[in-house]
Simulated assay, not measured.
Amino acid sequence: MSLDTVVEDIRDEARARAEEIRSEGEARAEEIIADAEADAERIVEEREAAVEKQIAQEREQTLSSAKLEAKQQRLEARRDVLQQVRDQVEAELAALGGQKREALTRSLLDAASEEFDEGATVQVYGRAADEALLTKILADYDGYSFAGEYDCLGGVVVESTSSRVRVNNTFDSVLADVWEENLKELSTRLFDQ
């Protein structure tokens, strides 16, 4: 064998080995690219899923927030309506006159009188505008006298210095009790459909 032949065999062998290495390199590169593309696709899908989840959460939070705000506005509107109703009732009680006012005042004074011993000295307070009415009514009660003004819609505040008992039978206190006892029913009648 000649030296040329040996050189040529080595070159062929080197070319074959180089081709084999290049083929392996290309195969490995394709494998790496395929893995990278698969990873990229998986990452894109994960990110898209994360974004969709975040959008869904933000949508749910926005919806919940809007529902809560609407509920608060409804409750506030209901409170406003209930306050308007109460204001109207108070205005009507304050404007009440004549025999009806006298009958209610007498009834409240009679109920308060049950708390005091017979013959006790009793002081009665009432609305400034009701002084004449109270003085007229108190003429029928022994030991009772008009003692002065009390800031209220009407009715009486009755007290005795001897027993240190004070009874608040004003229209305001009766309205507060009735309002508290019937608020749920009133709300149901006004707002339930």
Rank of each mutant, 00 (worst) to 15 (best):
E37Q: 14
G143W: 07
A70C: 03
S160F: 05
V85M: 08
T161H: 06
G148M: 09
Q72P: 00
L138Q: 04
I32E: 05
A129I: 12
R166M: 09
V51S: 15
A56I: 06
V122A: 04
A66K: 02
D110I: 02
V122L: 04
S160H: 04
A91N: 04
E31S: 13
Y144I: 04
L138K: 05
G155K: 05
R47D: 07
N168V: 11
A50F: 08
K100P: 01
R74T: 05
C152G: 12
C152L: 08
L63W: 05
V124R: 05
Q54P: 00
A29K: 14
Q83C: 01
K67E: 10
D35K: 12
Q72A: 14
A50C: 10
A56T: 06
Q57Y: 12
A50P: 01
D80T: 07
A66Y: 00
L63K: 15
R86A: 00
K71V: 11
R127M: 08
T121D: 07
E58S: 13
D110S: 01
I55Q: 14
D140A: 14
I43N: 10
Q123Y: 09
I137S: 02
N168A: 09
G155M: 07
D35C: 01
A49M: 11
Q88C: 01
R47F: 05
K53L: 11
A111K: 09
A38G: 05
L153H: 13
E45N: 06
R79Y: 01
D110T: 02
D130A: 05
I43E: 11
Q123V: 06
D130C: 06
G155L: 09
V165S: 02
E114G: 13
